[in-house]
């Protein structure tokens, strides 16, 4: 396939995955998971991000992640939720990028992403209200991040195994 055609194909796939990520964000928003700490959630969006990360590349995954945060934020959230999502999203992305560079397993990458996503949000929240006792929630958030990250990482792994051959290389 020549270069121009490949670029168009990639663009089309990115649009598709952007839509999928936004949809996942909506499903996430209506899933009634309450464990008493706001911000703890399954993070099913991360399946899409991880899939793109491992098949198209990190720049594409970051682009989709940021576009998704703004679209979902404007649709269902507010300025605060955009700020928190950005902090969590960018921090977890950096950590996932570093771990992947060092060839850690996809499950580890996903778990670290889940934990740092929560942690980024917690840090911003602590900073905004200047209450550092919010860090009281940190242990629970780490455990929740490990559990959710493992599930999401495994689902992402399955998706990559079955669908990666479709992606433009």
């Amino acid at each position: 396939m020549d270069k121009e055609k490949l670029a168009y194909k990639k663009l089309a796939y990115m649009g598709l995955f952007c839509a999928l990520a936004i949809l996942m964000g909506y499903i996430e928003a209506i899933l009634p998971i309450h464990i008493g700490i706001p911000g703890v959630k399954l993070g099913i969006v991360n399946i899409v991000i991880i899939f793109v990360f491992y098949t198209l590349g990190w720049k594409e995954a970051l682009t989709i992640s940021v576009i998704r945060i703004f679209v979902v934020g404007f649709l269902f959230g507010n300025l605060y939720s955009i700020l928190f999502s950005l902090a969590g999203g960018v921090l977890s992305f950096l950590v996932m990028l570093i771990l992947k560079k060092f060839h850690f397993h996809i499950l580890t990458v996903s778990i670290a992403g889940g934990i740092t996503h929560n942690l980024g949000q917690l840090l911003i929240a602590s900073f905004v209200v200047q209450v550092y006792s919010l860090m009281y929630f940190m242990p629970i958030m780490i455990v929740a991040g490990v559990a959710a990250g493992a599930v999401i990482g495994y689902l992402g792994h399955l998706a990559i195994k079955r669908l990666a051959y479709l992606m433009p290389k």
């Binding site: 850690f104 397993h105 778990i111 670290a112 934990i115 860090m135 009281y136 780490i142």
Partner: peptide, 24 residues
């Protein structure tokens, strides 16, 4: 999963356990 993956995940859980102990 390689050995270092398990080590890293164990470190996460150890930090959580430590934090739990300190905060309570």
């Amino acid at each position: 999963m390689k050995k270092r993956d398990i080590i890293l995940i164990s470190i996460f859980i150890a930090i959580a356990a430590l934090g739990f102990g300190i905060s309570r």
